[in-house]
Amino acid sequence: MIARKRSVAILFALMLAVTVSGCGTPSKIYAKNAQLGVYFTVPSDWIAIPEEEIRSYELEAADAAAKNKADLVLWQEAYSASKNTTAKNILQLEAPKALTAFARVRALTIEESDAMSYNGLRNLILPVTDLISGTSTIVDEFQLLDEQEIVIDAARGLETLFSFTPKGGANETVHQTALLSNDRKSIYFFLVRCTTECFNESEETVNAIVDSFTVKESR
């Protein structure tokens, strides 16, 4: 009887302690879309860029085709180390000054779905294949640093690390993860980019962010 009371009391105290200890700030920001099954984390001091901003920026500079594509976006989120980063910085070729992470999930049209290949995944923002072979000169000093195939339960695709210098801008490094869902209906796109200097400075952070990007079976 006494022993039971005591054990109850100890257990209770433990739980209380744990609870109280939780009264602090979390160490990371957890970005997720549980419905689509996409999760990643960024450091807790990063700033989120509102999704409406990204959308409106994309639409104002877009033609009809691009507008249709914008409707296919299922989810997108962007975080940046600096509060000065805007949607423009994310979407243009010119590198943002601070480390930025951008995730997007987009549904594919039937034609795209039929045609999608690893080359297609790789070439989502830049014609990387052509740049590697030298047939494209859209950017200068293109360098493919690393590429890996990713095969997970829900999707498969490519993880590409490359650097380039956009015309009239500083050299930047981009870590691109592009995955095609197994039912070929949507693509998962994750970018971590910065100027090469800042990229190399925050190597650990980048690795942590990139490693955290998870795609699970959508519920």
């Binding site: 609870t19 939780g22 602090g24 979390p26 997720k32 999760y39 984390t41």
Partner: peptide, 16 residues
């Protein structure tokens, strides 16, 4: 359970 990346401590923090 809902987030594979979420650790215990961070979960406690978030939930509190």
């Amino acid at each position: 359970a809902g987030n594979p990346l979420l650790g215990f401590v961070d979960a406690v923090n978030e939930r509190s």
